[in-house]
Design a binder for these strands. Structure first.
Length: 580
DNA sequence: GTGCTCG
């Protein structure tokens, strides 16, 4: 155990109050002459000078992009401003290690070559906005082919990648894949639609090497069945021809027979929602055994860490405990970052590495974002009808805040002569599956949905996201609008707001502004919201009146001809553009 | 407020 390990063990979860002890630290440095940071080769107090100039850049960029200047209201959870020690220590130690590793290969002109190598790794990270924190970090990869040489990845996986249209690794894939191939436990945050699924699926397959009959060796947990089934499909694509048995729990009842103690354990990877898995674990005797699990991936980790009564968190804890192997590795992924998850990871994961791509908790800049004041609740329906009347480019996703409201809005729009449907957790699984399939096939133009579809779902070619009801937090907003503008494509998001939504307007306006979309100054100038109020809002969104049909005198104005509601262009486009 | 087993 080196000094760093020791410090990590002793100081797990500890915060260094720089404000309080900064003076003492200075004194200590002066008295000691050489400085405290020299003590263990670590900059404990964040005051020491770093000797490798090129390596500092990454840190500064991270600091800047982490949104330190963004107010807390934005739901942008940042590191506390005066806690630089840990972060600096990590980055610095990381870069130092890289230099050390490279040192072996460099014989002449040590210093010069050293900084060049250091610089090139840093440049890759810098150019791709990869911010990484931890010790003993493997270099990011630049191409998928490198994996074949460096990690002996099965060439068939690379073929599958290419067949699926993945040419070059995205930033998150560049860094997360080598890390996981080194069996490192990671917390990874990367924007919506930036390739997180491949980032964790590929190392899983690589690490399993070949099918085995020891039971599940890798598990992926998703917050919704729709996301689980999407990830499952993605895994099948990547593992084609390799013989892996990739499973999804379709029905708990069947699964009991399939995976129980009498089964031949002929399976490798499981994708599931938490409660189905727990159902199997809690059978007597258990019909699921997780003792062979070597990789546990938590997708949408911040959602699955959500606390509260009947929240996901307890379920996740049960699953963590059931993965009883001492060799189990864990990886957590999400588009959004919370201090809670990070804190947990620091305390519970082994030699944690944090990877962040770009600024934390930000919306993608490929989405054209618009805030639309609609006055009152009735104004929303008017605005919605107006949008439909003007013509729109399907497919469109419309988010509302509750199941009841999704039903109500559906009843209002179903007579408009457009192909509209609705999805929420109280529809049957069959209905849910049908809706998703139809929407993917372009048969549904407007899909009304609850938070069920807010995270992870990859509908290719969603042109417009409408936030009919204001999101309950900036994080929720980022995920919702992330259903469009994926993988570099353009998208549009329109968010309705009324007087009632004023409390959260500022934080969401800040997210929009940060992504480079215009926002009126007065919105970001609002007073910051108390964090207490913020929590209340997340639990109890503003009460809204029922979505109902306009008074007759308003309706007849635009409602005479149903056909006119969808513009001719939109109709043609709907037929042309069939989303995958 | 949303989502997460079975019957």
């Amino acid at each position: 155990m080196d000094a760093q390990d020791l410090f990590r063990k002793l100081g797990a979860g500890a915060k260094f109050d720089f404000k309080r002890f900064g003076k003492d630290a200075e004194r200590f440095k002066k008295k000691d002459g050489s400085g405290a940071d020299v003590l263990a080769g670590i900059d404990f107090f964040g005051t020491g000078k770093r000797d490798v100039s090129g390596c500092d850049e990454d840190f500064q960029q991270c600091q800047k992009e982490s949104g330190e200047e963004v107010d807390e209201d934005a739901g942008v959870e940042t590191d506390q401003p005066l806690r630089p020690t840990k972060r600096k220590r990590g980055v610095e130690a990381a870069t130092l290690k890289i230099c050390k590793k490279k040192k072996k290969n460099v014989k002449s002109r040590k210093q010069g070559a050293l900084s060049v190598l250091c610089f090139s790794v840093n440049r890759i990270r810098h150019q791709n906005r990869i911010h990484v924190r931890g010790t003993d970090l493997p270099d990011p990869m630049a191409t998928f082919e490198e994996l074949q040489e460096e990690y002996k990845l099965d060439p068939r996986i690379i073929q599958n990648l290419q067949a699926a249209g993945f040419q070059n690794p995205t930033p998150i894939q560049m860094q997360a894949i080598p890390l996981m191939l080194h069996r490192r436990e990671i917390l990874a945050c990367a924007p919506t639609g930036s390739g997180k699924t491949v980032a964790f699926c590929l190392p899983l397959l690589a690490h399993l090497r070949q099918p085995a009959n020891r039971g599940f060796r890798a598990i992926i947990i998703s917050p919704t069945r729709e996301l689980a089934s999407q990830t499952h499909r993605e895994l099948l694509k990547l593992s084609e021809g390799l013989g892996f048995r990739v499973h999804i729990i379709d029905k708990g009842a069947d699964a009991a027979k399939k995976y129980g103690p009498k089964s031949a354990k002929k399976f490798d990877v499981l994708v599931t929602t938490p409660n189905r898995l727990i159902f199997l674990l809690k059978q007597d005797p258990p019909t699921m055994d997780l003792s062979s699990v070597e990789w546990l991936v938590v997708d949408e980790s911040d959602k699955l860490f959500e606390d509260g009564k009947s929240g996901f968190r307890e379920q996740l804890a049960t699953i963590f405990l059931a993965c009883s192997s001492s060799h189990v590795r864990r990886a957590l992924f999400s588009a959004t970052f919370t201090m809670e998850v990070e804190g947990w990871c620091r305390l519970n994961l082994d030699n944690l590495v944090s990877v962040n791509i770009g600024p934390r908790n930000s919306a993608v800049d490929t989405v054209d974002q618009e805030l639309l004041f609609v006055g009152t609740e009735n104004g929303k329906l008017l605005a919605m009808r107006d949008l439909i009347k003007k013509g729109f480019l399907p497919p469109v996703l419309v988010f509302v805040q509750s199941i009841d409201r999704s039903r109500e809005l559906f009843h209002e729009l179903v007579y408009e002569g457009i192909n509209v449907d609705v999805i929420h957790a109280e529809r049957t699984q069959q209905q849910r599956d049908n809706v998703v399939t139809s929407f993917r096939a372009g048969k549904i133009w407007v899909l009304i949905c609850t938070a069920l579809l807010a995270r992870g779902i990859d509908f290719k070619g969603v042109n417009l996201v409408i936030n009919y009801d204001f999101p309950t937090s900036a994080v929720e907003y980022i995920h919702r609008i992330g259903r469009t503008g994926r993988a570099g494509h353009k998208g549009k998001a329109i968010t309705f707001f009324t007087e009632d939504d004023k409390p959260l307007l500022r934080s969401i306006a800040n997210v929009i502004k940060q992504a480079g979309c215009p926002v009126p100054d007065y919105m970001t100038g609002f007073k910051k919201m108390h964090s207490k109020l913020k929590r209340q809002l997340q639990k109890r969104p503003p009460r809204r009146t029922t979505i109902r049909t306009m008074p007759r005198f308003l309706r007849t104005k635009g409602g005479a001809s149903r056909k006119r509601f969808v513009g001719a262009d939109a109709l043609a486009a709907a037929e042309r553009e069939v989303p995958v």
